[in-house]
Design a protein around this nucleic acid. Structure first.
Lengths: 172, 172
DNA sequence: ATAGTTTCGCTACCACAAGTATCGATACCG
DNA sequence: CGGTATCGATACTTGTGGTAGCGAAACTAT
């Protein structure tokens, strides 16, 4: 499968050295075949991440459990080999590439945003802020250290957002 | 000045299209001159950011005012034309480039980390977490939308970290 | 002022990666 | 068995980071 080859190549070589040529070689197909199926390297990675993440498991009796499990779930996913690198990589490319930013925002972020809005009963801007905080923190740690965030810090992150998004919170 | 030319070029064209050639042209010098002074594009940007940010203005009577002013300061800096793009850009490059990551961590993050440790009396891992949350959130918003974070959301960010880092907080 | 040294600008170049074009082979379908 | 659509391999274009070498300009010291 192309997705598996993509993740393992990114994991081995990092995002920048994981060229489309190498990914294709790892998947046993030709580079042209990849470009027949995806319009760009970024689109391939976004699809790959969608496959790797799957739907959010929105479990939990109350809001606190819901948010806690969502944060831990995404932290665990980002920590999987290759996933965090690929995520940080597309995100990086998207900064200077409005087209890729659109793909990332519409195809990747929006589904999770809508699911969270529905499950938490929060308005769009609050959920977007929630995503900024959680994903931004995880990616910043990953980008600065090259390693996923340790469990203790993930716990702190969970505690922080629970406190801020507690039912009676003011803000925004 | 090279720094001004760098920021304005990044602001106009985005990080990826702001090639070293174009930056040099905007500064009225040759590309080779840039590479005589900086070993890589990333190092140039880091120096440029150091110049643009300057030292943290750690003012405030108590911890809350200190942290609040620090968060608002960095949010304002990231919102300046070109600065946010340049910041997100180097950060992006650093993900796949351990050497640049080292430069970014040692020359850019560490001075602010040490100043914050000193001013807040917090251990290293807590200050690193603080930086991950604040900078990560701001950059994620910038990367996803292309625009700096609005004041209302910056206010929410301030409120969130103040709540989490209040004196009696547990965690980590 | 003049000779020597350093620095800078310019042109050309290399390595490498994204994305495209072409062609031949292969597999699939009627 | 014939036709069609897909895939693989190769070669190519374009753009960017980074380097080499040369000549001119500026600065220093006597």
């Amino acid at each position: 499968m192309v997705f598996a080859a993509t993740l393992s190549t990114v994991h081995e070589l990092g995002y920048a050295r994981a060229t489309v040529d190498r990914i294709a070689a790892a998947a046993g197909i030709a580079k042209t075949t990849i470009y027949r199926r995806w319009p760009s390297k970024g689109a391939l990675i976004v699809d790959c991440l969608l496959d790797a993440f799957g739907p959010v498991p929105l479990e939990g009796a109350d809001r606190a459990e819901l948010m806690s499990s969502a944060v831990r779930w995404i932290a665990a996913k980002v920590g999987e080999p290759g996933v965090g690198d690929a995520f940080a990589g597309v995100f990086s490319d998207a900064v200077s590439d409005p087209a890729l930013r659109e793909v990332l925002s519409a195809q990747f972020q929006d589904p999770y945003r809508l699911a969270l809005q529905d499950a938490l009963g929060e308005p769009e801007n609050r959920v977007l802020f929630f995503i900024d905080v959680v994903v931004g923190t995880l990616l910043h740690r990953m980008g600065m250290t090259g390693e996923p965030m340790a469990d203790a810090d993930v716990a702190a992150l969970v505690e922080m957002v629970l406190l801020h998004f507690a039912d009676g919170a003011a803000s925004t």
